[in-house]
């Protein structure tokens, strides 16, 4: 019950906030803050209404953490997944099959690549000057860390 109240608070706040102030930025930092509010609500309900012992409060925190992690990744997918965008696009042509080249042309002509560039520029990873893009120190660090981590975990950085 405590987990449910915490989750409802978090998701409710998230939906209300995002509907009131629409933005192209994923605002992950703000979402994490709202998640902390949700977890705090869950712990307060557990502590004062159900009088949970210390061990049970830890368990509650861990279950909350699991749902928060799951929700954050689900949200990241909803915001930035190319696959979901493709599915949503194909949904418009309900029973038909579409030529692959037309999908490629349409996607390439859209401003999605430039959106990513703008978002990374706002995050301080790259610098855009006229037609040129250059890596900042933070961006270089991110790229090098990603390369090292991918070697460690055995993944290919395919994109």
């Amino acid at each position: 019950m405590s987990v449910g109240i915490g989750a409802a608070t978090f998701i409710g706040l998230h939906v209300l906030w995002w509907r009131r102030t629409a933005s192209n930025n994923p605002r992950i930092g703000l979402l994490c803050l709202l998640a902390i509010v949700g977890v705090a609500c869950s712990l307060i309900v557990g502590l004062f209404f159900y009088e949970l012992a210390e061990e049970a409060l830890w368990a509650l925190l861990w279950i909350d953490a699991f749902f928060v992690v799951l929700y954050l990744f689900l949200y990241a997918g909803i915001v930035r997944s190319v696959s979901l965008t493709l599915l949503a696009h194909l949904r418009q042509d309900d029973h038909r099959s579409i030529d692959l080249q037309s999908i490629i042309d349409e996607y390439s002509a859209s401003a999605r690549f430039e959106d990513r560039i703008q978002l990374m520029s706002e995050s301080g990873f790259i610098q855009v000057s006229k037609e040129f893009v250059s890596l900042t120190k933070t961006g270089r660090l991110l790229a090098k860390s990603a390369k090292g981590l991918s070697r460690l975990l055995g993944t290919d950085l395919e994109g």
Binding site: R80, I117, F125, S134, A143, K144, K147, G159
Partner: peptide, 10 residues
Amino acid sequence: YSLRIVIDLL
């Protein structure tokens, strides 16, 4: 997607 752009730049 974004991460790969940074790697390409590097």
